[in-house]
Design a protein around this nucleic acid. Structure first.
Lengths: 179, 179
DNA sequence: CAGTTTTGTAAGTGATTACTCACTTTTATT
DNA sequence: AATAAAAGTGAGTAATCACTTACAAAACTG
């Protein structure tokens, strides 16, 4: 990965998040990244290839976060860490995750993005075991609800990221676990 | 609203939901609707105007659903009806609501779609009062959570609409209210 | 029915855009 | 240093697409 290659990637990421994939011309990416347009195609074959490279990056980052959660031994800690995840992600790399979420609704990436990764599946398994250990009657269902809350919370973060809102909501969510 | 005008609208809706707004050419809409391309512009000014007309339709339908919930007197019924909402919407008009959800992530419609309508605000108020009447300590927070669950549930419905999944999940969600 | 407005069409058109290609410069290899 | 491979450029180009325009048919109005 050369310097310019990475420049192209982060510029494309930013522009895709700001303007959307289809409405961002490769010419603009090149201009903002300060490279020639041809270089994009040399490195990433075509515009889709550029997006694929970005999506691949996200797989890695999600895996890293999953590993972190798995290393917690206490199930309550795992649940709370899961709830904190969207807050962390959005604080660190807002554009990146906004793009990820918008991708879920694009036909083309619908399957690709939401085929759960091995890391993701391991977290689900761990959370299920955790809920069971905590005495919940239907651990699988509890995990589903937790995942819904995660989705919904991410939505709200994406749309109105006021800090005090985030804090109180997160605290309240955590207070629900354990019941 | 002439016959062809409506034909254009429902065709555009279907194609936008299937392929996305930016990747659906007006020429295709015209072809599939069996009208000339020029007619689209005669009636809706431009491509954005076509989308605006679709979004306006959604406002109306959401309001109708909100009214229905407000007419329920029992707070538990209101909460349960709210939880059932996404299931109903997706069963009746899947494409339409898929498009609505994907729009939330398009910069252009980010504000427009998610500025809560008066009807929406009234439902929120009613639910808040309901939670209070049921003895919940923090009714506003409870409503937030309910809205997150709604978002998350809609996501799951959009991505994997297996009927048995829907039923069991909905039942479990309902069983959480009242606590 | 005459006149006017509305609905509809078909054939453009200019601008945009993803991608190519011939070429140069830099970096790696022996 | 010589050679090869990779990185990088910039000027095309063919295709697509949103939109226009000149015109015709239909529907409405008095």
């Amino acid at each position: 990965m050369t310097e310019k290659q990475e420049l192209i990637l982060v510029t494309a990421l930013r522009l895709f998040a700001e303007k959307g994939f289809d409405t961002t011309p490769t010419s603009l990416i090149a201009k903002e990244a300060g490279v020639s347009e041809g270089l994009i195609f040399r490195h990433f074959t075509n515009k889709d290839g550029l997006m694929d490279a970005i999506v691949a990056m996200s797989e890695e980052r999600l895996s890293a976060n999953a590993e972190r959660i798995l290393q917690l031994s206490n199930p309550v800690d795992q649940i709370h860490a899961t709830l904190e995840l969207p807050v962390q992600l959005f604080q660190e790399e807002r554009e990146f995750w906004m793009l990820q979420f918008s991708l879920k609704w694009q036909k083309k990436y619908k399957n690709q993005t939401y085929t759960p990764s091995p890391a993701h599946l391991k977290v689900i398994q761990a959370l299920t075991d955790g809920f069971r250990a905590l005495g919940y009657a239907q651990p699988e269902q509890e995990v589903k609800i937790l995942m819904m809350l995660l989705d919904g919370f991410s939505h709200q973060l994406a749309l109105s990221p006021s800090p005090e809102y985030i804090e109180t909501t997160l605290a309240f969510l955590k207070s629900k676990y354990p019941n």
